[in-house]
Design a protein around this nucleic acid. Structure first.
Length: 426
RNA sequence: GGAGAGAUGGCUGAGAGGCCGAAAGCGAUCGCCUGCUAAGCGAUUGUACGCCUGAUAAGGGUGUACCGGGGGUUCGAAUCCCCCUCUCUCCGCCA
């Protein structure tokens, strides 16, 4: 959510910046409602002031046993006028709030202009495409042949886009979760948290999934709870409606959670394999920082995500999302894309974003600056570290051997109880 | 699932229709005092949104709202009524 005072005073500037996202936003409607709100507010506050003053006078008169019936009657009229205005005000504020919730974040000045994914510039590349003396196969073939991924039974149990992991496949997934958590906890200084996997409407609104993207979420029938689409939601909401001490910042959390996405509007895309599932595992990093350090923290966060792939020895590139590809709540995002030889493509495996104060304003996450005593919004950031299912894909496709086996990256071997290769014969 | 109790400022905790944005204590900050990081004294100590002033600053002035959330009664609600949420205790059930 943008600051309505800032928006009021910088309407033109904001409008130009939002245009770069490639959509039109109704900022004229904002001005209208904002003006209306302030007009009503002025009148109703004046009347309330009158009522407060006169009511005190009534109290005084009654104490002295004097007659107050005349002004009581007069105040009755004032009160009913206040009530009318209050209803008006409530309606206007609700409309204004709703409108503000649908306006996306302003892209940071360093974000390149562009229309879509094809315009995202590469900022870094690590490693190189591994050479193959055979045609590398996609992970769904490898996984089924090794009997570690069972897509048919996954859809039997539940439906399309659900997968059953078996044997070393399940172990590999679990090993990756632990490896990633340990790396971020022990070497990158994050604190592990294990949040609820369902959240309420306020939490979803706080991080920006609601009200605009309800169709992407799974809602639990008979409740107003939603399955989390990412740990970002519960973890960012840890500090919703709190005022933090400046000394507590920055806060770095890391969490493993499953993620549930309805994937509305993605029918026909990535239908094979593990890339696009309704349920997947993810290790997520979340930061709360002071405004002046959030962009340094974003760089560090992105490198923390990249480090996972470096340790696994998987070639990747990092791109900056251009204005046309930038997510709703984000001011700047880096995507880390792992090389997937079986698909002859780079696929997103992590997305690292700085939301500046956009989520903090929605969610009421603030801190008190000690020099001035003033309360300010924190900046929130998050990044996948990494999407676990897609990391399995990257390992299967990059580490596949001519004989059909898959060599486990060295750092994972201890997490797999010494298993260093998954072979056809188990 | 059944029965009961509760939700007040950073914390503890008063309050029972007007004198309450809210006592008191603790904590914190600033100042004073004290020959020494103690004790004492004094002051300050919430958030949001308007309006005025100021340079669309810093600051100042002023008003309104907020005592879990929402609605109602009343000239006037932290206080009365209704609904909801959450917390705690006991019972049942269960991992």
């Amino acid at each position: 959510m943008l600051d309505s005072k800032y928006l009021r005073e910088n309407l033109e500037r904001v409008s130009v910046k939002l245009e770069a996202r490639g959509q039109d936003f109704n900022l004229g409607q904002f001005s209208l409602l904002d003006q209306k709100r302030r007009d009503i507010l002025r009148e109703v506050e004046t009347l309330r002031n009158e009522r407060n003053t006169v009511s005190k006078e009534i109290g005084r008169l009654k104490q002295h046993g004097e007659d107050a019936s005349g002004i009581i009657e007069k105040m009755g009229a004032v009160s009913s006028r206040i009530k009318t205005l209050d209803d008006d005000l409530k309606e206007t504020e609700a409309g204004l709030h709703e409108l503000l919730l649908t306006i996306p974040n302003i892209p940071h000045d360093s974000v390149p202009r562009g229309a879509g994914a094809e315009d995202n510039p590469v900022v870094r590349t690590w490693g190189g495409k591994p050479p193959f003396d055979f045609a590398p196969r996609p992970h769904w073939e490898i996984g089924e042949e090794l009997k570690i991924l069972d897509f048919a039974r996954g859809s039997k149990i539940t439906g399309a886009r659900f997968t059953l992991y078996t044997g070393l496949g399940a172990t590999l997934e679990r090993a990756l979760i632990n490896f990633m958590l340990d790396l971020h906890i022990r070497e990158h200084g994050y604190m592990e948290v294990l949040p609820p996997f369902m959240v309420n409407r306020d939490s979803m609104t706080g991080t920006g999934q609601l009200p605009k993207f309800e169709e992407d979420l799974f809602r639990v029938a008979g409740t107003d709870y939603f399955l989390i689409p990412t740990a970002e939601v519960p973890v960012t909401n840890i500090h919703r409606d709190e005022i933090l001490e400046e000394a507590a910042l920055p806060i770095h959390y890391v969490a493993y959670t499953p993620c549930f996405r309805a994937e509305a509007g993605s029918y026909g895309k990535d239908t094979r394999g593990l890339i696009r599932q309704h349920q997947f595992n993810k290790v997520e990093m979340v930061k709360f920082t002071k405004p002046e350090s959030s962009y340094d923290e974003l760089e560090a966060l992105t490198l923390n995500a990249e480090e996972v792939l470096r340790r696994l020895g998987i070639h990747y590139r990092t791109v900056t999302l251009c204005t046309g590809d930038l997510g709703f709540s984000s001011a700047k995002t880096y995507d880390v894309e792992a090389w997937m030889p079986g698909q002859d493509a780079y696929r997103e495996i992590s997305s690292c974003s700085n939301f500046e104060d956009f989520q903090a304003r929605r969610a009421g996450i603030r801190f008190r600056r000690s020099e001035t005593g003033k309360v300010e919004f924190v900046h929130t950031l998050n990044g996948s570290g990494l999407a676990v299912g897609r990391t399995v894909v990257a390992i299967l496709e990059n580490c596949q051997q001519k004989d059909g086996s898959v060599v486990i990256p060295g750092v994972l071997v201890p997490y797999l109880n010494g298993v260093d290769r998954i072979t056809l014969h188990g």
